[in-house]
């Protein structure tokens, strides 16, 4: 009996030398790496264009990144459960159009915003129901709602862009509930901290990871798999909706194509932030940093004046780098 236990000790000794790493830093290693990469990127751009490091430009980056950050946080929840949400860009656009339309027909800012967020609620619920109750593949389900919400965004105003009438609506994005911190930044921080807290410290957050890690095992353990998945899709759509609202509040104009390019960016942000599209991994901080990274690349390319066609390639390289870092710091067994 004692001999047998010795047997297991050796296998573990072998492993100890390979895997022992400080736990907290190790669990945030991807985030630390991206944060460092962002700083390096900013400094590099700053060498060409000193203004890149000015307060003004940093504010620009935050403002440009805010909608993407919020959308990425939603997509992250879905990705953690092992799903994917392709509909966020369309929901983003449709929210803007519905909000603008509501205002144009006389609704005040609050009512119009509620109408906009209802778009997120409805499409999130549709996604959630089709994935959980009907049991369709998330890719297919959200491809459908991507197409439907996208076309509705054109239908509601016949493709025209809509100016915003309500005079105080800009306050949503640019006002300062806490003096000195513009609302869009505040929203990003609050949402990121709240989500990170729930995902790491609250049981329900761990259930998201459990479901994405192995839905079958999670079910055997009595975790409410379907409810968690449903919640993920609703949250994703709602956050996309909110991001759309914020953008409309910022530019005071709603466009049917507004979110078209954001969906892939949000997925990229989540992946850069260390999430696996197979589910079970990822963090809110990572997703936010991923979104910042993408925005910084765009900003840098613009400031230096490189042909903007290169943006995609640079972003692609960043994704590759992030994934490689993750891969090599975290080798799988065969």
């Amino acid at each position: 009996m004692t001999d047998a236990t010795n047997g297991t000790t050796t296998t573990n000794k072998l492993r100890t030398t390979r895997f022992r790493v400080p736990a907290v830093l190790f669990s945030y290693r991807t985030e630390v790496a991206i944060a460092a990469a962002i700083v390096v990127l900013l400094l590099a751009v700053g060498m060409f264009v000193p203004a890149a490091l000015s307060m003004g430009n940093l504010q620009n980056i935050i403002q440009a990144a805010a909608p993407l950050i919020i959308m990425s946080l939603g997509v992250l929840l879905v990705v953690v459960t092992g799903g994917i949400d392709l509909s966020v860009g369309s929901v983003f656009s449709l929210t803007g159009m519905v909000t603008a339309l509501a205002m144009a027909s006389g609704a005040d800012g609050l009512t119009a915003s509620a109408a906009g967020l209802a778009v997120g609620l409805v499409f999130g619920s549709i996604n959630g129901l089709l994935v959980t109750v009907v049991g369709l593949a998330p890719f297919v389900v959200t491809l459908i709602t991507y197409a439907v919400a996208g076309s509705l965004a054109f239908i509601v105003t016949n493709g025209r862009s809509m100016p915003i009438g309500a005079p105080d609506f800009w306050l949503l994005n640019s006002g300062e509930i806490i003096p000195g911190i513009p609302n869009h930044l505040l929203f990003c921080i609050v949402l990121m901290v709240a989500l990170e807290y729930v995902l790491r410290k609250v049981v329900v957050g761990r259930w998201f990871y459990a479901v994405g890690s192995s839905a079958i095992a999670a079910r055997l353990l009595g975790i409410p798999v379907l409810r968690i998945k449903f919640a993920a899709y609703v949250a994703s759509s709602l956050l996309a909706s909110f991001a759309g609202l914020l953008t409309v509040s910022y530019i005071l104009n709603a466009e049917a194509t507004a979110g078209a390019s954001l969906m892939l960016q949000a997925i990229a942000a989540v992946v850069i932030g260390g999430a696996s599209l197979f589910g079970g991994t990822g963090s809110a901080i990572g997703a936010v940093l991923g979104a910042l990274m993408i925005t910084c690349i765009q900003n840098g390319v613009n400031l230096i004046g490189v042909n903007s066609f290169w943006q995609g390639s640079v972003t692609g390289a960043a994704i590759l780098l992030a994934v490689l870092i993750d891969r090599f710091s975290n080798k799988n067994r065969i």
Partner: peptide, 8 residues
């Protein structure tokens, strides 16, 4: 150069 042709 624009890519998305959007106001934002």
């Amino acid at each position: 150069e624009t890519r998305g042709l959007t106001i934002s």
